[in-house]
Design a protein around this nucleic acid. Structure first.
Length: 676
DNA sequence: CTTGGCTTAAACATGA
DNA sequence: ATCATGTTTAAGCCAA
């Protein structure tokens, strides 16, 4: 039964809209029921499910990036070919041309420069060369990627095994696979070496003495931006008369590229997340893709919407034939095309670097959070557990009476190895949930304006709105056209407007009913098809007025808590903006995975936001969390028990509520998970 | 310290 | 019997 709720919450992306809760219930339910049922519930399974969930989400995100890269690589590959027969079954690409100087991938820039300058190659030779390079490069990328995946898998399973003491078989299997692929990778590298050597033998390439002959890490050894620019100048200066490709001078920040990324994420591999566990490789090689172009005569990666998609071209071609003509005439294999092709390679590489960096960042974030969450585990006291930064729901609920319990949050040693998302679980990013904190709607701020202002924020972040149930109910009713709502409609309003109320349905629904009954201001009116609730405004205003009368410390507290909240939200915005939107604006419209990526990010963040929420309960409702972008000093330790009264003060101080365990004992009604 | 508002939990009733 | 709805009571926190 717990598994049911577990899988149910796995829905990705759509959770926000359909009112179902996010993955956060998993541990709640798990540990909750575990506490009630003699601890027989296998917490490990929950952990595994969560791990899988996070992994899935990350893979979704990665996949989006991969798809983009794939498209870029297709473009790149096609641009290295002259054959007009090349077609593509892929939909027309609309990758925005955002060209920058970047490092070629396999052949070092110097080598490429030599090739270009010596002009010893016929176009056909050059073409063949490029193709070979591409093929090799891609294969190597695939292998590296898969190898990496295997490592992640292994890491994940190691973690699981440490807590569950099971699945040794699979692990062995993965390990074996890993070995095999390691070997394959090695072979690929040798192949590449041979290729380079043969080039050398043919006199096409002179490897500089000081230069590593075998660029196993060509990215890391890539040129610095100035070199690239120099090269670009040299290449382009040969074509003074030619039209400059308008987009080539855009925008990628070279200073941030070509740097430390020692683990370039080679992609173009679309992998079934499960394939790696059963040894089945579902590899989607770009080579195959490009071959398949021939089978679909009227689509082409460089042709879409009647426009030539050659970087910087955008010439209008009425039909495919004219496009081909255009391609052959305007983008024949000459210096310019070669240079553009190389630039495109660099675009791809830039994207790969970006992906690698973001993966690294994600890893660091997860590692960081996990470290903090495990630190206090040295002390088995639940109080200490709860006072950790990443207040894992499971941990806080787990065993207040020191019941024997295997924490779902892994205590496994943290290796800085790229281990994928396995370290931290979705749920472990959620906090202890609704803390019994006063939140009030009496700060002289009209609820309607606050809700209106922060609508998106409340919808997406699991932040408790700083209003009483009564105020919220009233708002819901007043927002309705008839100024009356059924109970269920009120529920729906809550879940629709506030991400916070997509969790713990039983709790807040009870509270809603309680408030409706308790307050005289809510009047039940019998209707044709049942009863509706209305607001007696006079009664509502009669309530004892409370106001915040210039309490400086409180205000300050509000600001800091908002300040803590805001960066997270900003991080979300930035993450989406920085990583997805600019690159995908036109390229991936209609790509459903993009939405999933955003949702995944948001959902992940929501966990953190909720974490923030407990700190924010006393915050000023008048300030829009979204608007609060002006720099406010963010404390390094926002959850310092002395600073922030959040869950921490509840549990770290002497006033440990006797019903503390009860407080956390939320149980969702599965029925209510999918309302609307 | 008291008081009232608020939240949460829970028991109970009722009707579909 | 189950569920949604509605009422009521109680306990605890918090701010005035």
């Amino acid at each position: 039964m717990m598994q049911e709720s577990g899988t149910e919450t796995k829905s990705n992306g759509s959770a926000i809209q359909n009112g179902s809760s996010g993955g956060s219930h998993l541990l709640e339910c798990g540990s909750l029921r575990e506490g009630r049922s003699n601890g027989e519930t296998p917490a490990v399974d929950i952990g595994a499910a969560d791990l899988a969930h996070v992994q899935q989400q990350q893979q979704q995100a990665l996949q989006v990036a991969r798809q983009l890269l794939l498209q870029q690589q297709q473009q790149q590959q096609v641009s290295g070919l002259k054959s007009p027969k090349r077609n593509d079954k892929q939909p027309a690409l609309q990758v925005p041309v955002s060209v920058a100087m970047m490092t070629p991938q396999v052949i070092t820039p110097q080598q490429m420069q030599q090739i270009l300058q010596q002009q010893v190659l016929s176009p056909q030779q050059l073409q063949v060369l490029l193709q070979q390079q591409q093929a090799l490069m891609l294969q190597q990328q695939q292998l590296q990627e898969f190898y990496k995946k295997q490592q992640e898998q292994l890491q994940l399973q190691l973690l699981q095994q440490q807590h569950a003491g099971k699945q040794p078989k699979e692990q062995q299997q993965v390990a074996t696979q890993q070995l095999a692929f390691q070997q394959q990778l090695l072979q690929m590298q040798q192949l590449q070496q041979q290729h380079l050597l043969s080039l050398q033998r043919q006199g096409l390439l002179t490897i500089q003495p000081g230069q590593p002959a075998l660029p196993l890490q060509p990215l890391a050894q890539g040129m610095i931006p100035t070199e690239l620019q120099q090269l670009w100048k040299e290449v382009t200066s040969a074509h003074t008369a030619e039209e400059t490709t308008g987009n080539n001078h855009s925008s990628l920040d070279l200073t941030t590229t070509c740097v430390s990324s020692s683990a370039p994420s080679k992609t173009s591999l679309i992998m079934n997340p499960h394939a790696s566990t059963n040894g089945q490789l579902s590899v989607h090689t770009p080579k195959r893709e490009s071959l398949s172009h021939e089978e679909h005569p009227h689509s082409h990666p460089l042709y879409g919407h009647g426009v030539c998609k050659w970087p910087g071209c955008e010439a209008v071609c009425e039909d495919f034939q004219s496009f081909l003509k255009h391609l052959n005439s305007e983008h024949a294999l000459d210096d310019r095309s070669t240079a553009q092709c190389r630039v495109q390679m660099q675009v791809v590489q830039q994207l790969e670097l970006q992906l690698a960096k973001d993966k690294e960042r994600l890893q660091a974030m997860m590692t960081h959070l996990h470290v903090k969450s495990t630190e206090p585990k040295a002390a088995p006291q639940p109080l200490n557990l709860v006072s950790s930064v990443t207040l894992s729901k499971s941990a806080s609920e787990a065993s207040p009476q020191s019941l024997p319990h295997t924490p779902t949050t892994p205590t496994a040693p943290l290796t800085p190895v790229t281990q994928g998302p396995s370290v931290i679980t979705t749920t472990s990013m959620h906090t202890v949930g609704p803390i019994r904190r006063r939140y009030s709607d009496k700060y002289n701020v009209p609820i309607s304006s606050d809700i209106a202002q922060n609508q998106e924020f409340y919808k997406n972040a699991e932040v408790r709105p700083p209003f009483t149930y009564a105020s919220l109910i009233r708002q819901a009713i007043l927002e309705s056209p008839e100024k009356q709502l059924t109970l269920n409609e009120i529920y729906n309003w809550f879940t629709r407007m506030f991400a916070y109320f997509r969790r713990n349905a039983a709790t807040w629904k009870n509270a809603v009913r309680h408030n409706l009954s308790l307050h005289k201001c809510f009047v039940r009116v019998e209707n044709v098809k049942g009863a509706v609730w209305t607001v007696d405004e006079v009664e509502f205003q009669k309530r004892r007025p409370q106001k915040i009368s210039g309490n400086p410390s409180l205000i300050k507290n509000m600001q800091s808590s908002h300040a803590y909240c805001t960066p997270l939200n900003a991080a979300l915005q930035a993450s989406i903006a920085e990583n997805s939107i600019p690159l995908y604006t036109t390229a991936s419209m209609g790509n459903p995975t993009l939405g999933n990526l955003a949702s995944a990010i948001r959902e992940e963040l929501n966990g953190a936001m909720e974490h923030t929420n407990s700190n924010e309960s006393d915050s000023s409702p008048g300030r829009s969390p979204m608007q609060a972008v002006h720099p406010v000093h963010v404390k390094e330790e926002p959850l310092d028990p002395e600073e922030a009264e959040g869950p921490l003060s509840l549990v770290t101080t002497a006033n440990h509520s006797p019903d503390f365990d009860h407080d956390r004992d939320y149980e969702d009604e599965p029925v209510n998970e999918d309302m609307e």
